[in-house]
């Protein structure tokens, strides 16, 4: 009954600090065999959880990065055309009949697996990460629904390939467009937000143990304050970790010590010209002073 807590601990051992909500959603998704849809701003660790889960369960992570114009050939399978061409030439020289050649070149041997097909043919159930599903087109979303409900893929020349094991499916979305209700209904859902102070401290301790406790608290306090500023790109957890690494690497013992160094290290947090301008050294120093 407390498996979700066990899962949370497992993830924590892999350096992923999951909120109770997220751990529960993930646990249910695994227990019920349903896909899990994660939504939230960029940089809150949506993708990372799939990696952590794969490591915790000691299984493969298969990732499908979605983009506009993604089609079946890149997501499911493709025929190995070069090999087919060569084979046809060879067949012609050997005097093999066209029909026999056709049967041969449309067989398993010439099939190239892409993520979705690979995911249903693993002996141990892998973690299938479908990243940024909102970037893919609606047509692909519809196709994905079919795969996610049947876990079977039909190749016209070969027939239907049934799933050997059901992958643990995690979908992420940044919300650049509304996903269809059908897809939402197939999935369990969790909204991932920027971590609160305590959680972020735990993340920092897990991922960058070399950072001293007091400095760590300053860093997290500073980053949380920066997030409240009016920025184009709000720094995520990964940026926070980069920033912490930079600060630690520069040998800073106290964030408020040296505004110049702080300003240099900000390059890891703020990624646009406008944001750099929005946070001049004085402001950064003030925020750091508050955090200290």
């Amino acid at each position: 009954m407390d498996e979700w807590k066990t899962l949370q601990d497992e993830l924590a051992r892999e350096g992923y600090v999951a909120s109770p909500d997220l751990a529960m959603a993930l646990h249910l998704a695994i227990a019920l065999g349903r896909p899990l849809l994660l939504e939230g701003a960029a940089g809150v660790g949506k993708t990372e959880i799939a990696r952590a889960l794969a490591q915790a369960r000691d299984t493969r992570l298969i990732r499908l990065q979605c983009y506009e114009g993604l089609d079946a050939a890149q997501a499911i399978y493709e025929w190995n055309y070069q090999k087919q061409l060569l084979s046809i030439r060879a067949a012609a020289e050997d005097g093999e009949g066209a029909r026999a050649a056709e049967a041969r070149i449309f067989s398993e041997e010439f099939l190239l697996e892409r993520p979705l097909l690979a995911a249903i043919r693993q002996k141990v159930a892998p973690v299938l990460l479908i990243d940024e599903i909102d970037r893919a087109d609606e047509e692909f979303e519809a196709y994905l629904l079919e795969v996610l409900s049947d876990f079977a893929i039909t190749v016209p020349e070969l027939g239907t390939i049934e799933a050997v094991t059901r992958p643990h499916v995690i979908l992420t979305s940044n919300g650049t467009r509304d996903l269809s209700d059908a897809l939402r209904r197939r999935c369990l859902y969790a909204h991932v937000d920027y971590p609160d102070r305590e959680t972020e401290l735990a993340i920092l301790r897990a991922r960058a143990p070399q950072v001293e406790a007091r400095l760590g608290e300053q860093i997290v306090g500073f980053v949380q304050a920066v997030r409240k500023e009016d920025l184009e790109k709000v720094p995520g957890v990964a940026e926070m970790l980069d920033f912490a690494a930079a600060i630690a690497g520069l040998g800073v013992a106290d964030l408020a010590d040296d505004p110049a160094v702080l300003h240099v290290a900000l390059a890891t947090l703020l990624k646009t010209q406008g944001d750099r301008a929005a946070l001049p050294p004085e402001v950064a120093a003030r925020l750091a002073g508050k955090a200290a």
């Binding site: 009954m1 979700w4 529960m24 959603a25 249910l28 939504e39 859902y189």
Partner: peptide, 22 residues
């Protein structure tokens, strides 16, 4: 899969199932 008598846990479980968007 959860302890139903625990309202927090039940809440989280049902939220994961029933909520579909932010």
């Amino acid at each position: 899969h959860v302890r139903v008598a625990d309202p927090d846990m039940t809440r989280r479980a049902l939220r994961a199932v029933c909520a579909g968007r932010a």
